[in-house]
Amino acid sequence: MIDLAFIAERYNYWIFIVLMMIGVYIVISRGNLVKKIVGLNIFQTSVFIYYISIGKVAGGTAPILPAAYESGHEGKGARASAAHGESAPAPGAASGESLHAAPQSAPEALPANDLASAVAQTPQGAGPSGEAGLHAAPGEAANPLLAPPDGAGDAASALGEAAHKAAEIVYSNPLPHVLILTAIVVGVATTAVGLALAVRIREAYGTIEEDELEAADDIAEFGAAFGEKAEGARA
């Protein structure tokens, strides 16, 4: 029995795989040099999508630097570690299960911000790790929000819902984005060099079709007779 839900919720991988295959297929099957570059770009883009989609981590949190490191970079580390205490797992370190859950609905920015403030108010020691702290946060934070008397009921329940949603927070790990920005720069540079080469080849040979390029080289190397034979064989 095929588990359709299992397949469907991993749709980001399917997009990645299909795009990757399309890209590689174009690179291999097309004889036109510019089309090859197009294929190469599709191939690279599929990898970008893969990296970006694994950047969403359910139940993850920002990588918090251990206390020992603060002396060097307190401006960056101190604030975060004051809120969360001991070092938390690195975002990507979450186990395979939570990563596979990644493609599921990503909460909007608003509840995430609410959560951030809620976590800041949460007393220390909620859990040994940041992740546990996150899960503990909504309950405590929601209580004072739900406390206001009647009249604010709708708003309070909305806030409560937001807090509940935040329990399943999907954290956006910035590192893959940074990596992919770098890869995009590299990809752009590769495309530029490839296109420049295609232009030069067109100037030197008068064509950018692979078959014709090969034929031209054969004629240059072995004389016109060989070229005719090659043409004949192809026809």
């Binding site: 690179v27 040099l33 190469l40 590769t190 490839g194 080469l197 030069r200 080849i201 030197a204 390029l213």
Partner: peptide, 16 residues
């Protein structure tokens, strides 16, 4: 001029 096609092939394979 074959250096150009060689460089192009290298580029495609290298990028792959």
């Amino acid at each position: 001029r074959r250096a150009l096609t060689a460089a192009f092939t290298y580029l495609v394979m290298g990028t792959l």
